[in-house]
Design a protein around this nucleic acid. Structure first.
Length: 649
RNA sequence: GCCGAUAUAGCUCAGCUGGUAGAGCGCAUCCUUGGUAAGGAUGAGGCCACGGGUUCAAGUCCCGUUAUUGGCUCCA
């Protein structure tokens, strides 16, 4: 007999060799029907694998991440089986479960293209296969056997994968006539899968290497109930309505013009109003944190970027240098603000008493992003960083870093970005040639970031090999409407540029010392931040930020003059208003302004004019009753003050 | 940059197996002057992305280019 411990702490005894499924059955038949897999001592295994020693068990259902993972992983195998039946001679790459579903990378053979129009056939074949309700059978095989099995099927990609595996822990899973190299875990039977959809097809390089062959990647998602798929499809459609590109057009925030050039956003009046308000908000916070605003040109002598090292690394893939009538003179559209700020630092000799020197600029930069990468406002070729560079003494570094973290936290709180993720990006120790600077300097910079996160209790994922070439960084990532992750705020520690630009300060000891630099951008870029803000709010911006706070709707044209008078009065009180004086009925005006997501509407007619009042409506809520114009102005301003008092002033 | 998809009026889209363009919204003019989510009439808008080709005939079929788009790679 063995002891099985459950998550609630209770312990039961079972015969050795018992399976998770049997354990579930011993508790309740309903539980047994829901069990997808099991976590036994932190290892996820099939629900029908014998357990032969004392263990802690967690029965995994669809609601458990690991359960879903097994479900989708098996689904990937079923999709592969379907593809094998539909496309004889197809070769398989890898087919993992991902955050929302799974994919399989396949090579359908020369000249064979899998297109969107083929999805229905794949889906039908998939459902046919799960209808066979095949059991998944796990087999441990030797490396030689595995090689033989996949060589017979002509699976060159699988053979390459097997080559990299250790003999002795190679497993394959069979279902019906199909088998795949896989370490599991899986469902016990494919029949549990009740709904499936191919979500998209895309190219993907084998092993993520753009020099190798591009395979066809099929994305899919599956569920244990048909309704769940329907719900998922509805959810995706809802999310698409929050797409910033769509809302940006509807609310006239920004636009693109082929004539201006791709990836070059045009900020329309409403979008500009929103952006400027965000910039003012940050400026106020920065002032409080001792920053000084600076301005620098949009171009700079190429020498600046040769010095910084950017030219060597990105020069060929950037907008090319601007030539002047002078022989040999070259300027670059600035891809970064830091070299300019270094020159500001160098303007005069600095004393240790002057540090930290924090200089901030909403600096527009130009980067020639690959054409396939451009995406709405989130990935563009011209964008404005809310950039600042802090030049400080090494002993001030940690404290300065923490202060930047505090600014980011103020901003994310103010805008209600709760579900951000923090990522520490470190250098890849196996590929140091990608980076500039000595080991010693990198170690100091990396440990400062790790230490800062520890002090603030910020849980951060650590990624090696993701650092900027001049230094490690801490990034704040936020998801968009359909779950894509975008980097917003960033803080980077840099000992290298001060070295390259020969930055110095005179210390207490009257000797020359080298400052440390922090690059930081809490929004990241105004473009990307606004894009993510649009998707988070669905275009319903908070009252303090929104371009138009109030729409005044006269009942008929007879009250247009009164409406304009009210507008003037409100404007005197710093309320942002528009007057809808179109020749339309009131119901129509309400509907149109609701759709424009204007937070407040006030209706004015005969009654209001006589009383010097307005009839108030809140967007999405409806009628709020009548009040005097001055009370209404007060109400708006109080609401704004309530929202902003915690983070502005 | 690579693989797939898409491109028709200002916007959202229809246009079947080829026979010289349609709707709704928006816009303009007129009627209507209204009380909390779409009042009515009339009208103006299209080198069907661009360039080639096949055909008696191309929005429709084929090729190329450009832009957009879903991924991959990249992201100072």
């Amino acid at each position: 007999m063995i002891n099985i411990k459950f998550p609630d702490g209770s312990v039961r005894q079972y015969e050795s060799g018992v399976t998770a499924l049997q354990i579930a059955e011993s508790i309740s038949p309903r539980l047994a029907a829901d069990v997808i897999a099991a976590k036994v001592d932190d290892k996820v295994i099939e629900a029908n694998r014998p357990i032969t020693a004392d263990a802690t068990i967690n029965l995994l259902k669809w609601d458990d991440e690991d359960g879903k993972h097994a479900f989708w992983h098996t689904s990937a195998h079923v999709m592969a089986e379907a593809l094998q039946e539909l496309y004889p001679g197809i070769q398989f790459g890898i087919g993992p479960a991902i955050e929302n579903g799974f994919y399989y990378d396949v090579d359908p053979g020369d000249g064979v293209v899998i297109k969107e129009s083929d999805f229905p056939a794949i889906e039908a074949k998939f459902m046919e296969i799960v209808g066979r309700k095949a059991n998944l059978v796990r087999e441990e095989v030797s490396k030689a056997d595995a090689q033989k099995m996949f060589a017979e099927r002509g699976e060159n990609y699988k053979l390459e994968l097997i080559n990299d595996l250790q003999d002795g822990n190679i497993t394959i899973y069979r279902q019906g006539g199909f088998f795949d190299l896989c370490k599991g875990p899986h469902l016990v039977n494919t029949g549990i899968i009740k709904a499936f959809k191919v979500t998209s097809v895309a190219g993907a390089y084998w092993r993520g290497d753009e020099k190798r062959k591009q395979l066809t990647r099929l994305y899919g998602i599956s569920f244990p109930k048909k309704k769940m798929l329907d719900d998922y499809v509805t959810l995706m459609e809802e999310a698409k309505k929050r797409d910033h590109r769509k809302i940006g057009k509807e609310l006239e925030l920004f636009a693109f013009s082929d004539t201006v050039g791709k990836g070059l956003p045009l900020w329309l009046p409403k979008g500009t109003a929103l952006r400027l308000r965000l910039e003012d908000f940050l400026k106020k916070i920065q002032k409080r944190f001792g920053y000084q605003q600076v301005m620098t040109p949009h171009i700079g002598n190429k020498v600046l970027y040769v010095t910084s090292g950017h030219y060597a690394k990105y020069g060929k893939d950037s907008f090319q240098p601007i030539h002047t009538p002078e022989e040999g003179e070259e300027y670059l559209l600035k891809p970064m603000n830091c070299p300019h700020h270094c020159e500001i630092y160098k303007f005069k000799p600095r004393s240790y008493k002057d540090l930290p020197f924090r200089c901030a600029e909403f600096g527009t930069v130009y980067r020639y992003e690959q054409s396939g990468e451009l995406h709405g406002l989130t990935r563009v070729r011209s964008f404005t960083q809310d950039d600042a560079h802090i030049f400080c003494r090494p002993d001030q570094l940690l404290d300065e870093f923490l202060k930047v973290m505090d600014i980011i936290s103020i901003i994310f709180n103010a805008l209600d970005f709760k579900n951000f993720e923090a990522q520490i990006s470190l250098r890849d120790p196996n590929n140091k040639s990608k980076y500039i600077g000595s080991d010693d300097v990198w170690e100091k910079a990396e440990s400062a970031i790790v230490e800062a996160c520890k002090l603030r209790g910020l849980p951060a994922r650590v990624e090696t090999g993701e650092a900027a070439f001049y230094g490690p960084k801490l990034d704040f990532m936020v998801k968009d409407a359909i779950g894509r992750r975008w980097q917003l705020g960033t803080i980077q520690v840099d000992y290298n540029l001060p070295e390259r630009f020969g930055l110095e300060y005179v210390g207490e000891d009257n000797q020359k010392h080298r400052p440390v630099m922090i690059h930081r951008a809490p929004f990241g870029s105004m473009e990307r931040f606004v894009a993510v803000l649009i998707e988070h709010t669905g275009g319903k911006f908070p009252l303090w930020l929104t371009p138009d706070q109030v729409a005044i709707l006269p009942i008929s044209e007879r009250f247009n003059d009164y409406a304009r008078k009210v507008a003037e009065q409100l404007e005197m009180e710093d309320v942002r208003v528009i007057v809808d004086d179109r020749n339309e009925k009131i119901g129509r005006k309400i509907r149109d302004n609701e759709l424009k997501r204007i937070p407040y509407m006030v209706i004015v007619g005969e009654k209001e004019e006589q009383e010097g009042a307005v009839s108030v409506r809140r967007q999405g809520e409806g009628d709020k009753g009548t009040m005097s114009v001055s009370d209404f102005a007060k109400m708006i301003n109080t609401e704004v003050d309530q929202m902003t008092k915690s983070f502005i002033k």
